[in-house]
Write a protein that binds this DNA or RNA. Structure first.
Lengths: 81, 81
DNA sequence: CGTGTAAGGAATTCTGACACG
DNA sequence: CGTGTAAGGAATTCTGACACG
């Protein structure tokens, strides 16, 4: 599930998001797709679920920097643990 | 695992096969990728495993028509069952 | 039979920017 | 801030064919 194998077009279909939104969430460091040698983004099924969650949070009034903070605290926690 | 989401380039990387081989196995009806609206093939992780198996069988001396027969008998069996 | 390759075209994806608010 | 869009280029994939054996 965590293999990054899908191109952005497939993720668009699976999430219902636009490519613009997906790229923006990456820009805000909410998701971290791999890249092919040619520069194309590659996503996992986990990324798809995460993207849906991100969009739900934004719809509920959160801002990307807040979601970013949450991710950072998770990371910090996992480093301690 | 059976979601057809990968393009042929990713399958090439995951299987070590050439695109030519992958397309040929499809032509011989040993795998059945989906297609995007643009005509691009989409494969699942199951397809990747199946492709590896196909290639092993060919290396062991089997021919594509023999593998095709095996698939057909499987199908016939599952129809009865 | 199974696979390689060159050919030309079509679909996909990329980045940086301007726009709105 | 989050998203839409037009722009131009680069990487990807497609098909049908010729080749070898």
């Amino acid at each position: 599930m965590s293999y990054k194998v899908m191109s952005i077009g497939m993720v668009r279909q699976l999430t219902g998001l636009t490519e613009r939104q997906i790229r923006y969430y990456e820009d805000r460091q909410l998701i971290f797709p791999d890249r092919t040698s040619g520069g194309a983004r590659k996503f996992s099924f986990e990324d798809v679920e995460r993207l849906k969650e991100i969009h739900r949070k934004l719809r509920d009034g959160f801002h990307t920097f807040e979601l970013r903070k949450a991710i950072m605290s998770e990371t910090a926690h996992s480093i301690k643990t």
